[in-house]
Computed example of a mutant assay.
Amino acid sequence: MSEQRDEKSVVVVTGASAGIGRGAAVEIAARGSGVVVTYNSRPAGAEETVATIRAAGGSAVALPLDVGRSETFPEFRAALSSVLESEWGTQRVQALVNNAGFGGGVAFEEMTEDAFDRYYRVLLRGPYFLTQTLLPLLADGGAVLMTSSSSARPGDTEPGYSGYAAMKGALVVATRFLAKELSHRSIRVNSISPGPTRTRLGDDAFERFPAIIEGLAAKTALGRIGEPEDIGRVIAFLVSDDAAWITGEDLQVSGGYAL
């Protein structure tokens, strides 16, 4: 009789070439899961994430994915299925972390339909339909995590972010409904809303304009901006069995920003 191999827990983290996605991927791997790291324009960053995980004894693979192009999702699912089998001997994903996105504001007076549509494609339509596409691979009892933003909550209303925040707010609403619709498979769906976090978003705004950090830290109850690891640890918890009794929630992960 051949020896039966235990299935490895594998988590997909989109947009994990840097920032919050990398922080989440590293923390998830540290808990023992394999990680599929997706990237769009930064393959070197994704390979750096993979190398960091492997150096710590974990397992990870990088795959390309443009979340703004939903027509490519079936092709991504096929590539993911192949990697799951070849790397981990499984056809199941334990969790999907919809993190990929972009930042930067556009004043309402200057908003164009093209700019608004890009927010929609990447920040809302992308994670919504990627979840649908990967649903056949998602294990019963698994988890989906959406990365929203504190800008979608009352109190964090900065000029120029109406389009961005509208999509992030819609993602929170979709999260609650998906938690209900997928509950028959015991799949948990939650979102998090990070505050200002040191990432590459906004064309490396924190690197180019370090003076803005002091003002943001002053608006944060805990007196500093977030680091990717701060958010990554919460994501790793929410997609783990430790959070098995949490679904349909949006968790503010911001150190008390704009309280």
Rank of each mutant, 00 (worst) to 15 (best):
G126I: 06
H184M: 02
V144P: 12
G160D: 01
T133E: 15
R233E: 03
I212H: 06
D241F: 00
G256Q: 06
R198Q: 13
L222S: 06
A166E: 08
V189G: 07
G232E: 01
G223M: 05
T49N: 11
V11K: 02
S162I: 12
M146R: 06
G232F: 00
S41H: 11
A115C: 01
G195V: 07
G19Q: 08
W245C: 00
G19W: 10
R121T: 08
F76L: 13
R188T: 05
V234A: 08
E181L: 06
L222K: 07
A29H: 02
M111G: 00
V234Q: 03
V106G: 00
P228S: 09
S41K: 14
V144W: 11
A258S: 11
M1E: 11
V234M: 08
I231N: 11
E48R: 14
S240K: 05
T147Q: 12
T52K: 14
E85C: 09
L178I: 01
A30P: 02
F76P: 11
P194H: 09
S70F: 06
P43L: 04
S148T: 14
G104V: 09
L63Y: 10
Q91E: 13
R233L: 03
A62M: 10
V253L: 11
S151Q: 12
L124W: 03
E3A: 08
V106S: 03
V13K: 07
A46T: 12
I53C: 09
A78H: 13
L130H: 11
L96V: 15
R125V: 12
L216F: 13
G163N: 02
N190Q: 03
V173T: 15
A24Q: 10
K219W: 00
Q91R: 15
M167I: 06
S193G: 07
S150R: 15
E227H: 12
D114Q: 14
D6A: 14
F102K: 14
V253I: 14
G103K: 09
G32A: 09
P228F: 09
L145I: 10
A244W: 00
G195S: 09
F177E: 10
